[in-house]
Design a protein around this nucleic acid. Sequence first.
DNA 1: CTAGGGTTAG
Length: 654
Amino acid sequence: MVTLSRKFSTATSDSLTYISHKQFSQNPQKSTPFYQIQQQQLEHLKSRIVTTLDGCKNLTQIKQVHARILLSDLEQSCYVLAKLIRTLIKLNFPVDPYPRSIFNRVKYPNPFLYNALIRGYLIEERLNESIELYSLMRKGGAGPLSFTFTALFKACGAKMNMSLGRQIHGQTILVGGFDEDLHVVNSMIDMYIKCGFLEFGRKVFDEMPKRDVISWTELISAYAKTGNMESAGELFDGLPVKDMVAWTVMVSGFAQNAKPREAIMVFEKMQESGVETDEITLLGVISACAQLGAAKYADWIREVAEKSEFGGKHSVVVGSALIDMYSKCGSVGDAYRVFQGMKERNVYSYSSMILGFAMHGRAHDAMKLFDEMVTTEIKPNRVTFIGVLTACSHAGMVEQGWQIFELMEKCYGIKPSADHYTCMVDLLGRAGRLQEAHELVKTMPIEPHGGVWGALLGACRIHKSPDIAAIAANHLFELEPYCIGNYVLLANVYASCGRWSDVSTVRKLMRARGLRKNPAFSWIESEKGMVHEFFSGDMTHPRSGEIKQALEDLLERLEAKGYQPHLSSVPYDVNDEDKRRILMIHSEKLALAFGLISTLPGSEIRIVKNVRICEDCHSVICGASQIMGREIVVRDIMRFHHFHDGICSCGNFW
DNA sequence: CTAGGGTTAG
């Protein structure tokens, strides 16, 4: 054995130490200088080992490779050993003891080796060990690499460990150079954002000598997530080169902040600018279309999705989003067709479909799909159960609901959340079992949130139960004092019982808190895809005269068949004639009348409403579907109503 | 060998 090569004292290069004479003599390339041959041979061996490691699937295989390394001249090679450690960690082996022991035997570990181990500890969320190793690396004279910092920042962000993050920030300056490394600084910004200190991230951003599209996008995304679309938009406008991710952040930002029209507008601009689109961009647009609930947009975005390069058939994510969208646009049939056409399905696909059926009152289909789901590999999650419970609730299936509710924890290990209790309260409340519902709220093991009391209050509205309504409302007035809907609901309950002095007390409370009622409105798509909006009593539509006439004709025909206006739906202390007039001009009735005169006889009418449908409108639309022979679909704030031949899919139960 | 975007419920 001849010692040929230098001992690598600088820890940044690979610590190769020896090469055997035997290996050398087998190589007859006499004209090549000595060290070049050994380099070549070792490089060859290294790359063979790395390839083998990439193919390793289990511990036995890795140990074989390790044995080969130990017998070769690569026994101290940081490059190969780092790869070995990374492979182990990729296969989910804990850092201790095996990968750590490999590291411990290396005399001069280089930063790559340190980094492999640090990353391992980070994955195990052992932040302290990572930091210890980092200090050891510094003490040993090895310089850190930028990805050591990025990994550390990432871990601090995930653990929301701001103080440690700031220390590491200090290190980047101390070590020198890294505070100008884009990878490092960008992950630092991300760390501050994840720790909830957006302004710190912004400060770093403002002081950066050079920034790239990633720095910008991080901040735009952070503003969008806090709902500050103005700041997001300002930054975005100033971004010199907008790439796909930056555009996508704006699209999904608007979608997540309930600004679907803006989301679609940004998407259209994105397409004009010629930037590529991928499925994540589409998710934002699809979600926006779902919020709009307009069939025109639904078909448009499905076409865009199908034309895009990720396959004519939908991917799991896009497919699942489309299912949700079609359900919310009133087309459960289309939603189910997408569901059936998907090659692969996940928990989103099933949950969205179950929720879709539930929203449309197709409880039986929802349950059937749930039964099918549990035979697959896909595990139901908390959202799935919200779908199943909603289905029970909308169909008045109290007993099945209780069964599912118990099954959830027993068989699937999902602890009922406040949202699940909301479903149960809704289920009992709708079925008229208000006392039981109230009892459940009082005895639930977790703190009831606004949703739970809101469900109880909503049930009191249907069953005209002012006493429990007052209890629920008082909780709500504390939990969410500025939520206008609760005051309106309580006032409506009092009004329906004729307790007018209580109604005016609630109205006074509203005024005292500076709250004003949101105007109710409905909208409908005409045949040409135009959207027509109607407010209550709205006579601004160009065809108002015809609309009024059509409505009067309709009501006349209904009265001839025994229809009586539900005067108790009017929350004002006025005479019956005025109540009749108020009911007559409800926005959904105007939209319905416009639908009747503006669409072809026999075609479907779709109406969307921003609040719950009232009882009187519900019965009028039921009658209209029969007399006029029309399918009518109404989406209110809670669910869908499919009216067909005088019957609604909700079974008069909403 | 590292930095940015995502779907269901509420």
